[in-house]
């Protein structure tokens, strides 16, 4: 290589520049993805709203989009999603948090180092597998206990969705608890506290924002969950209070429509996008809140 006798001034390194542009274009793809999601959802939803008023969609209590006379009140779908999600949260949050406390505060390093990867593995089990489990195991077991339960029911869906988000809550909450500096635990022990008091009154409150963020992420995941609830909870949109009956979630509706051959452009086709837009907004909101909580909690430690 020849020794450069002078320093180049102001010239552009074209090779370097084109690589940078190429990389920037790749980055642009994620921005375009977001734009495409919003564009598609907004466009088709607006088309839908030219047939159905937003008020009818958001506050109507009957969801009969495919048969005449049709009715487009999304509340039954929202309700289905809500009871499955709440049921799942009731199961997964206490168990997940208790497991996280066990892993972070009580388990030996050896137990922890084996359980943690297993949790990650379980969190990666496809949701269709949970759907199988609901249909072939949970529902039959429930049937022996509660004979009047329907083949498709919200309870079974809630149970398997709860099981599905359990590893995620345990793993993320464990991370949050482990991020609490050990000096805080020692400070608490040094004034004569027991492990229970240290854990419940110092460690968990300190990690609370991280724990809450993990709950919100898991709930958002449960809301967007599709296959398990489609298989377990059925396709009957209704506002029933009973978890023993078949219901339909927003996601299950989307699957139901796309399994049939709905022609593009019709109102039925557009309902897909309107429901998806609502789903998108709800999960986005939860994700933004959980990120906001996480950011705040990082600030406390720095």
């Amino acid at each position: 290589m020849a020794i450069r006798s002078s320093i180049r001034k102001g010239g552009v390194r074209w090779g370097e520049f084109s690589i940078e542009v190429g990389l920037a274009c790749c980055t642009l793809i994620s921005v375009i993805t977001t734009a495409a999601i919003i564009f598609v959802l907004v466009k088709e939803t607006l088309g839908f709203f030219s047939h159905v008023t937003p008020a009818e969609f958001l506050f109507g209590t009957r969801w009969v989009p495919l048969l005449k006379p049709s009715s487009f009140g999304v509340l039954p779908l929202l309700w289905g999603t809500l009871i499955v999600t709440v049921g799942a949260a009731i199961i997964a949050i206490p168990i997940g948090l208790a497991s996280a406390v066990y892993l972070s505060e009580y388990a030996s390093a050896k137990v922890r180092s084996t359980v943690k990867p297993v949790l990650e593995l379980l969190a990666g089990i496809p949701t269709v597998v949970y759907g199988y489990f609901a249909l072939t195991f949970v529902t039959p077991v429930l049937k022996t206990v509660i004979p009047q339960i329907q083949v498709f029911n919200a309870l079974s869906g809630a149970i398997v969705v709860g099981l599905m988000i359990l590893p995620m809550i345990a793993s993320l909450s464990d991370n949050a608890l482990r991020a609490v500096p050990d000096t805080l635990r020692q400070g608490a022990y040094a004034v004569g506290a027991t492990s229970y008091e240290v854990t419940t009154q110092v460690v968990v409150p300190t990690a609370l924002s991280g724990i809450m963020a993990s709950f919100l992420l898991a709930i958002s995941r449960a809301i967007g969950e599709t296959m398990a609830v489609t298989l377990a909870a059925g396709a009957t949109p209704n506002l029933s209070m009973s978890m023993l009956e078949s219901i339909q979630t927003m996601t299950a509706y989307i699957v139901q429509v796309s399994l049939g051959d709905t022609p593009a452009g019709g109102v039925a086709y557009q309902t897909l996008f309107a429901v998806a837009a609502l789903l998108f907004l709800i999960t986005l909101l939860l994700n933004i809140i959980s990120q906001w909580i996480l950011r705040r909690y990082r600030e406390v430690y720095d």
Partner: peptide, 19 residues
């Protein structure tokens, strides 16, 4: 861009299917 990507990671898979 960073926030955008974090939010994309949380979008339900079925919404990607619709897109």
């Amino acid at each position: 861009v960073e926030i955008n990507i974090a939010n994309l990671a949380g979008v339900p898979s079925i919404v990607y299917g619709i897109i």
